[in-house]
Design a protein around this nucleic acid. Sequence first.
DNA 1: AATGAATGAGGCTTCATTCAT
DNA 2: GATGAATGAAGCCTCATTCAT
Lengths: 223, 223, 223, 223
Amino acid sequence: MPSRKRTSPAEPERTRREAILDGAFNAFSRRGYRDTVVDDIAASARTSKGGIYFHFPTKEAIFRELMRTTADKLISKVEKAVAAESDPIARAEIAIRTVLATFAGHRTTARLLFLDAIGAGRAFQAETNALHARFAALIEGYLDEAVGAGIIPPLDTRVASIAWFGALNEVVARWLLAENPARLEGAYPTLRAVLLRSVAVPETRIAAVPTESGPGQFPEAVQ
Amino acid sequence: MPSRKRTSPAEPERTRREAILDGAFNAFSRRGYRDTVVDDIAASARTSKGGIYFHFPTKEAIFRELMRTTADKLISKVEKAVAAESDPIARAEIAIRTVLATFAGHRTTARLLFLDAIGAGRAFQAETNALHARFAALIEGYLDEAVGAGIIPPLDTRVASIAWFGALNEVVARWLLAENPARLEGAYPTLRAVLLRSVAVPETRIAAVPTESGPGQFPEAVQ
Amino acid sequence: MPSRKRTSPAEPERTRREAILDGAFNAFSRRGYRDTVVDDIAASARTSKGGIYFHFPTKEAIFRELMRTTADKLISKVEKAVAAESDPIARAEIAIRTVLATFAGHRTTARLLFLDAIGAGRAFQAETNALHARFAALIEGYLDEAVGAGIIPPLDTRVASIAWFGALNEVVARWLLAENPARLEGAYPTLRAVLLRSVAVPETRIAAVPTESGPGQFPEAVQ
Amino acid sequence: MPSRKRTSPAEPERTRREAILDGAFNAFSRRGYRDTVVDDIAASARTSKGGIYFHFPTKEAIFRELMRTTADKLISKVEKAVAAESDPIARAEIAIRTVLATFAGHRTTARLLFLDAIGAGRAFQAETNALHARFAALIEGYLDEAVGAGIIPPLDTRVASIAWFGALNEVVARWLLAENPARLEGAYPTLRAVLLRSVAVPETRIAAVPTESGPGQFPEAVQ
DNA sequence: AATGAATGAGGCTTCATTCAT
DNA sequence: GATGAATGAAGCCTCATTCAT
């Protein structure tokens, strides 16, 4: 008898733990890692400080988990969006568009991943680096495919993918930090053209915008 | 007795103040803004905590001044390097090369400007934003010139310059955070080609590397 | 459903309660009262924290009960061992030997009674004092008998019994705290002689070791 | 100029540090190590919590220093008192009397050394053990001298000295923990006789009380 | 009766800033 | 102008105890 644990039907547990993660996400996104106090997280999660420490060993652990899962969600979202397409360049475009769209819908996600990750201090350098590397690797894959398919001339896709990611990242960051930012989507056409040209994609392909403009162009955001 | 006791003959006033700034620069670069305690700065500047507070009102003020002056130095260095050249694209190239070379020589400078500035917390967002904006504006100017001169087709130079800066920034950041990074200069040829192509600079210009490889290619670093 | 669900056939009620006491004894002996957390006790007793608080009101209550029952066991063991003998001095000797033997077999018992009892804090002073007093009273009784029987000259048996107990206690404590202690039994002959002489037992009696060496000399340990 | 540190004549500094030690001594003696909060020490030393951490790295360090210095004082006091006498047995007697007298005058000293030292937890076992060992070694030395001088028959002075110290310790402890204790000095004659007999000091020597009773018998207390 | 998640009152320590000398 | 001791407001984390299930 003592072995049966859960009586409630659907999803009774995990709630609190998730609530803490959500609260932490909120708090970190709002105030940054260092300026977020554990009590903030507790308040944001409608729990007590002690409750948090029942589920997580340290404040740092919460942040780490958050970074990882948030990145996971975003990356899997990108991969899902890209799956339908086979053309390497189109895949890259979709990837960029998906990230941009996601961030456009969720400044907080962007904030957590691209500002706090650095702001959290030297202790998180490895994590931050890994995060950036994951995204760059995603892009690098598409570029490698494109090179392999003869669509673009050979080049150091490593550096190029870092540059792509950096460009994307900076556009998002400037948008995050701006006082009253314009719509992030407005930057897409230019960014798209700039990035595609940067790896010598033929102008004819650049001119042909794959999907018509419109709300459908920026899919739902994660998290 | 407590008034006027200057013993040093001519040395203005700024000696001690400068020493503090230098010490702070050192400390911040080594441990980051948040993890640097005022005693670290004092030790690094061969002063006492009290001495620091005579010259600066807060730790934050030191950091702000440091960010500003460091950026000033770097920008004026870039402008000096660029002054000799009149061709807009060449100027942009030189600007990128100068920044890259400076950072290659001074990881600490890069660290302060591009990592700590974010790591310092939300309180510094405006500063960080201004810093990035200054660099982007520099680039934007060159691109605008290039467009005006008909060298490259019209485009949203605002977004493009942000993308350029972002690409540059990310390459540097990845280099800063890497375990055992390769030489930063190695990334230059690819980065150069990628950036120039991104704004549709004719391939003939890209192929013609303006300056031969060599130590002269990466000028002295600031700070 | 929540009422009455006893599945075990005959096992009284005290099984779980006893398990908790055992677990607590273990935990306290290993880490000391203050450094033992209730979860340690729960884990050691294969129960949950809540279960403990069903049987005991506080952590302190557990410790108090443990001190009392452990002392009870040891004292009744001593009294049993002593019962067979009628000579007062022999009885005292047996008492000392029994205590020493018990501790030799159970460092943990000794630890609980003689170290943790103090380490538990001022709140337990009365308990500790009572514990020591019980042992001293035991000894005092034998000494009084010996004086009454004219075996030893009159003396302040109160102080003498405290001294005896203190000597015994210290020998045990030093053994408990030693890095790699020799066998506790090795100290017995000297300790015996010292104690007997201290109350002026005739040398002839001291020379005559009452029981031959061997395993029988150190009876089974309590707890 | 900056090298001259102290301007005040006699003993200006060291004051605060000493005050903290005194305050800590007070607090520990009153409430025990574990139940003493750093704020208690601060209050008792008329300082702030931060001030304490300027002079000591941890609460533990304060306690350790206190244990060491208190023991030092007591031991040097004993050695000084003993120095005038050359007869080994007389020296031992004086040692015991000095300790007893010191404790009689300063319950707090005794409390710190003999109760808190254990109550502070497993982390201090080594310290406690060393403390007890120092006192036992002191006694052992006198006993060895006495054996060497042929005053008492050979015996395991190691065990005997531990027993002596234990007896002394217990008498003090019982006095410390008693509700309304009698004067500690009252126990001395009996304790003296018991201890001397325990190592077979001739009865003639025991009968001859070396110093007449009186206030001079119990010298000033340390600390 | 039992479980284990939740609570919240502290505890120790850090550190930017102040201030007497 | 400089020094460094002092201050005290937090911050992170622990843990005895409670409580819904």
